[in-house]
Every structure is written in structure tokens, then in C-alpha cells.
């Protein structure tokens, strides 16, 4: 999809989608009084009544949510509540898990991503993913970043590729640390550097949405701070969804927060509201550390 058709799609679909989204939200949270969203951003991804089954067992129940563009949305909730499961729905990584079934509707810029006619490979180039544990390929730093562009044929020449690799590493604020050792193995970097390499690798295919599943859980506080800074910069250009177990991290980096519990989306809203005056007792308990 090129820029124009994307824009068209957005203009055509967004208004109606947004109305649906709002009314949905109000229906869901009719018992709680909400202040309207301070930043009215266009919605990029919408999920409607998404349920996920692993074999016969249902792990996610009828989740509906809107992900705003160029902002960070955080998923929080106790372990096993389905955050990763839901996140994987957005780039159809659940397809790679045997026996996993997804129902409901998820659309990216108005297009249904579970449409049988849709090319999963293309979708995953538009919706990139960063995993919990840094997983660089056992190749050189350069090759790690060049991997995606090469597969998708994004570079015409070696110079093109060099430029993509450099700009991706720069956006992931890793360039200065590795520019003299591009051809050393990516697995030789420190954990935090490896995670930034994985972010650079995801950025290199110019995705529109970046999904991050606990990207800092294997890192020390300093590396975590670097990644958080990076996320803050990346949100200028990308739509970001991040799963995190750290309340502070959610509060620091995200604009919207969604709280999951036992496979249900309990509530969702602007981060400052969720953290200062949550609408649900369960959210309040989780945020204040009473369970989790």
C-alpha cells in the first residue's frame, strides 16, 4: 500500500470507525465517568470482539480497543492475563502457534488483517515486533539490520542498503556504539545493545506499527532507561504498543494504558487517568500492587 491509498483509506474509514469506537467505549464503561481524551489522535488500529483460543481453551475474551496513531499504548496486567496473546494478534504471530485460533475483527487503517486475501508477510512488514528477550540472529550487526530490507527488496544497491542500515541504527540510537564494528556478530553485543539492535532491525523495514512485548524485562535499569528514551523518540514517527510489567514504565512512556485481567480488557484510557483515578477497583488494586 502506498502513501496515497493509505491516506485515502484513513479518511474514508476513520470517522465512522471512530464513532463506533467512542460509543463502544461509552457502552463498556457506562458506570464510570470519564474525562474525554486530551489528545484526540487518529486511530490506526482497531480491534473488535477479539477472542483467542489455544486449542479448546479460551485465553482472551471479546476484547475491543482502539490504538491511536503516533502514540504509545501500554498493555498492563498480571502474568497470564493474555497481554502477549493479544499483542501477537496484531501481526498475526499467533498463526505460527499450533492450535491457536483468533476470532473477531482487527483492522489496520480500516483493512481487515484477518482477511484471507491479505498477505501475512506484507502485514508483518507493516507491523513490526520486538520480543521480550533480545533475539539477534547469529549474523553480523549489519546483516541483522539488513535482513528485513533484503527480504522485502527495499534496497536497490549496496549504497541504499548501507543508508538503510545506518539510519535504522541511528533511529535506534545504536549507531555511535557500533559503527566501527558493523561486521562483528550481533550476538556479541550487551543485552541492552542487542535489544536496540532488534529495534533497529524492526525499524529497517519501515513499519507503521511497532509491537513490543516486555522489551526491557531482560535488561538492567540503565539499559532500560535508554530503551525508554528511544521509545519516546520513536513515537514521533511510529504507532507503538508495548506490554510491560512495570507500572512506572507504563506511566513514563505511554499515552494510553489498557489493563487486562484473566483474558478480559478491564479498562482502557489515557495513562494519567488510569493511574490517577482508575474506573475499576481491579485496576486500582493492580496499580497499587495489591495483587498481580
Amino acid at each position: 500500500m502506498n502513501e496515497n491509498t493509505q491516506l485515502e483509506a484513513r479518511e474514508m474509514h476513520m470517522p465512522t470507525e471512530k464513532i463506533v469506537a467512542r460509543s463502544d467505549l461509552y457502552e463498556m464503561e457506562s458506570s464510570t465517568v470519564r474525562t474525554p481524551d486530551a489528545e484526540q489522535r487518529p486511530v490506526r488500529v482497531t480491534a473488535r470482539n477479539v477472542s483467542v483460543f489455544y486449542g479448546p481453551k479460551q485465553s482472551l475474551f471479546d476484547v475491543s480497543i482502539d490504538i491511536p496513531e503516533k502514540a504509545v499504548t501500554a498493555f498492563i496486567g498480571p502474568s497470564g492475563c493474555g497481554k502477549s496473546t493479544f499483542l501477537r494478534c496484531f501481526n498475526r504471530m499467533n498463526d505460527t502457534i499450533e492450535g491457536c485460533r483468533v476470532t473477531g475483527k482487527i483492522s489496520l487503517d480500516g483493512g481487515d488483517i484477518y482477511d484471507p486475501a491479505l498477505d501475512v508477510v506484507e502485514l508483518r512488514a507493516r507491523v513490526g515486533m520486538v520480543f521480550q528477550k533480545p533475539n539477534p540472529f547469529p549474523k553480523s550487526i549489519y546483516e541483522n539490520v539488513a535482513y528485513g530490507p533484503r527480504i522485502h527488496g527495499l534496497a536497490r544497491s549496496k549504497a541504499d542498503m548501507d543508508a538503510i542500515v545506518e539510519s535504522s541504527l541511528q533511529k535506534a540510537s545504536l549507531w555511535n556504539e557500533v559503527k566501527d564494528r558493523l561486521h562483528e556478530p550481533g550476538t556479541g553485543l550487551s543485552g541492552g545493545q542487542q535489544q536496540r539492535l532488534c529495534i533497529a532491525r524492526a525499524i529497517a523495514v519501515s513499519p507503521e506499527v511497532i509491537l513490543m512485548d516486555e522489551p526491557c524485562s531482560a535488561l538492567d535499569p540503565i539499559a532500560t532507561a535508554r530503551i525508554e528514551e528511544l521509545i519516546d523518540e520513536l513515537k514521533q514517527n511510529y504507532t507503538i504498543v508495548i506490554v510491560t510489567h512495570s507500572m512506572q514504565q507504563a506511566a513514563r512512556v505511554s499515552q494510553r494504558t489498557a489493563f487486562f485481567h484473566l483474558g478480559n480488557l478491564v479498562e482502557e484510557g489515557p495513562t494519567d487517568l488510569i493511574f490517577t483515578s482508575p474506573g475499576e477497583k481491579r485496576t486500582q488494586d493492580y496499580i497499587t500492587g495489591r495483587y498481580g
Binding site: 508483518r124 540472529f137 527480504i151 524492526a202
Partner: peptide
């Protein structure tokens, strides 16, 4: 490791 495979599939590789 499965992470290698997921990393590649997640980048849109077939």
C-alpha cells in the same frame, strides 16, 4: 531457539 524463528517471521519473512 524458537526466538530466532519468531524474529525472522516477525520481520515478514516467509
Amino acid at each position: 531457539p524458537r526466538a530466532m524463528r519468531d524474529g525472522s517471521l516477525g520481520l515478514g519473512a516467509t
